[in-house]
């Protein structure tokens, strides 16, 4: 075993600069190395902790890579059927209007099978937060084409690249949601650099406050990477995301409240 010289001198409370957020459980994350989910979870957990929302929060987890989100954040959870999280969250929030209710969904869940639930919950202006992880692929089932897969992008069900003539175009669900009168705050962010992490965290905090004020649906899209599904290293995947995903899904606010 390698003995690090002076390690005991370094591990001291006064030197602590980073620690596990209280809201994160001890469970080991099931995500692939370099995946954005872990960072997104961490930010969400930090907000819940910092805003004192543990006893207020009820989360709805999706079907997809983040299906076991309820293992990782120490709050009450409901695990929804594929795509139905906004419907589940609708009822929770209507019955418990004082609670902080959010969904966390991937692109297959939110923009394919759950299209109707997403659009109608946002159109009713349900007072919930939807966190939407868009990595342009079905990660959990092993890299199939998603509604958000880019034109020409290869996946196991578009092995020659997505041919938009037969497979349709990538769906910009966040743009659709922004066009609905019921949505209040709609933004597209990422978590691949410290600066972007800060921006995303700020966006979530804003959405939490809007929900307290009963403003309507807030949707935060996080454009993310999928090293395994894209068959790249984490570093390559982040570079590819910047060069290919961001031009199609530009970061920034799509709908901001007039304040």
């Amino acid at each position: 075993m390698v003995e690090f010289s002076g390690i005991k001198e370094i591990i001291k409370p006064e030197n602590l600069v980073y620690k596990k957020t209280n809201i994160m459980t001890e469970n080991i994350l099931s995500y692939c190395p370099g995946c954005g989910h872990g960072t997104a979870h961490r930010i969400l957990a930090e907000i819940i902790d910092e805003e004192g929302l543990q006893s207020e929060a009820i989360g709805v987890s999706p079907v997809g890579c983040s299906v076991f989100l309820y293992y990782y954040l120490d709050i009450d959870w409901q695990e929804a059927a594929h795509g139905r999280a906004p419907a589940v969250a609708t009822a929770i929030k209507r019955l418990f209007p004082e609670k902080f209710v959010f969904t966390y969904q991937g692109d297959g869940d939110l923009a394919a099978i759950g299209t109707a639930e997403t659009i109608h919950a946002c159109n009713r202006g349900e007072n919930i937060l939807i966190i939407f992880i868009n990595n342009g692929i079905y990660g959990m089932t092993g890299g199939q084409m998603a509604p958000t897969t880019l034109p020409g992008m290869k996946s196991s069900t578009s092995p020659y690249g997505r041919d938009v003539k037969t497979m349709g175009y990538p769906l910009k669900m966040t743009d659709i949601v922004a066009s609905l009168p019921g949505s209040y705050y709609v933004t597209r962010q990422s978590v691949h650099t410290p600066a972007n992490v800060k921006k995303t965290k700020k966006a979530i905090r804003k959405a939490v406050n809007y929900q307290k004020l009963n403003k309507g649906t807030c949707l935060i899209e996080i454009v993310s990477n999928c090293p395994s599904g894209w068959k790249m290293t984490p570093v390559q995947s982040n570079k590819w995301m910047e060069e290919n995903m961001f031009p199609y899904y530009p970061l920034g606010d799509l709908k901001t409240p007039e304040e």
């Binding site: 409901q78 929804a80 419907a87 589940v88 109707a116």
Partner: peptide, 22 residues
């Protein structure tokens, strides 16, 4: 009592899931 007309039977039963879970 909350009464809500859902966008489909599918959404309605999942709202029931959410409410029952509470």
């Amino acid at each position: 009592m909350i009464v809500l007309q859902a966008e489909s039977e599918v959404a309605a039963i999942n709202m029931v899931y959410g409410g029952a879970g509470c």
